[in-house]
């Protein structure tokens, strides 16, 4: 899977840091963010390919999450401009970025603890009439849409194996289930680009499989995925493209198999661990997905998963 030769080319010219993509969804220029004297992000040019799974990797403090926060409007850069789907979104608030179809999850899950799992999901739906103050007072103006939203939420929850938990408080879920909920909630808005900040952090290995399957599934459904990750196995198995950051800069870019062999990257971050047990496992899931099986079925019983 790692050396998948059937994968179509994503980039134009040589795979160097900041290289052009055939069909970019995000194009960013001259993005810098300083904290005091320290430069957290300094990216002259970056493009994220459409309908592909791109991994953003790098050692701690490389500026991955900061770049994520900048691109999603959760932080303000010192300089920089970027566009999403051809529209300039730099300087736009986080909620406006999300409304345009670029949704994100967080490294530390932000499930809304004292809302039910179903309410968490419903909150993800966009363009709800009942979210306006005046319509809220007139239930008959939003009841029909609410039923549609609920149906969609239940369907998604079933896919993510959370449907039995729908009336429980999100607070009662395990860490891994919260990750799943957050991803499912993000899908409520039918996003174009899903940005996942360390989707595997703190997740029990039993659930990792299921999560990976869901991420691969997103691409199958026509979405673009950009994720931050530490786990190299995961990157190697599911990513189509890898961008490596170190000390705020992009140091390498390319297809996973190529980047992994880049000596600079190995020195900077990856180490020489070639253990591929998990990678093979995920490759298996991908084949199942390709064969049309529900990836979630490959996962263990979620209720066994403990924090």
């Amino acid at each position: 899977m790692v050396n998948d030769t059937t994968r179509p080319a994503l980039h134009i010219g040589e795979a160097v840091p900041g290289c052009k993509k055939i069909d970019p969804i995000i194009i960013a220029d001259n993005v810098t963010r300083k904290f005091g004297g320290m430069t957290a992000v300094d990216v002259p040019h970056i493009e994220v390919p459409r309908n592909a799974i791109t991994a953003l990797i790098g050692p701690n403090g490389a500026g991955k999450t900061t770049l994520f926060n900048l691109l999603t409007g959760f932080d303000v850069p010192n300089t920089g401009e970027w566009s999403f789907n051809g529209e300039t979104i730099s300087g736009k608030s986080a909620y406006k970025v999300a409304q345009r179809g670029q949704v994100r999850t967080f490294q530390l899950t932000k499930s809304l603890a004292l809302l039910s799992v179903l309410d968490n999901m419903k909150l993800g739906a966009t363009n709800q009439r009942g979210e306006g103050l005046l319509h809220a007072l007139l239930p008959w103006t939003w009841k029909a849409q609410e039923a549609e939203v609920e149906a969609k939420a239940v369907e998604l929850l079933a896919r993510f194996k959370l449907d039995t938990k729908k009336d429980d408080y999100a607070a009662s879920l395990s860490g891994g289930q919260r990750k799943l909920l957050e991803m499912a909630r993000a899908l409520m808005s039918d996003p174009t680009l899903v940005m996942l900040d360390e989707p595997m952090a703190g997740v029990n290995p039993a659930l990792t499989q299921s999560l990976l399957g869901h991420i691969v599934d997103l691409k199958a459904q026509g979405m673009t995925v950009l994720f931050v990750e530490h786990d190299m196995h995961m990157v190697q198995t599911i990513a189509d493209w890898v961008i490596v950051m170190a000390e705020g800069k992009i140091v390498a870019e390319g297809e996973p198999s190529v980047v992994m062999q880049d000596q600079a990257v190995v020195d900077a971050y990856l180490g020489s661990n070639k253990d591929r047990d998990l990678g093979e496992l995920v490759a298996e899931i991908k084949r199942e997905v390709a064969a049309g099986a529900d990836p979630a079925l490959a996962g263990d019983d979620l209720s066994l998963e403990k924090e």
């Binding site: 608030s93 949704v103 994100r104 967080f106 932000k110 809302l115």
Partner: peptide, 10 residues
Amino acid sequence: EDEDAVRALG
């Protein structure tokens, strides 16, 4: 519960 999560949902 979490303002950032709500902003991230548009």
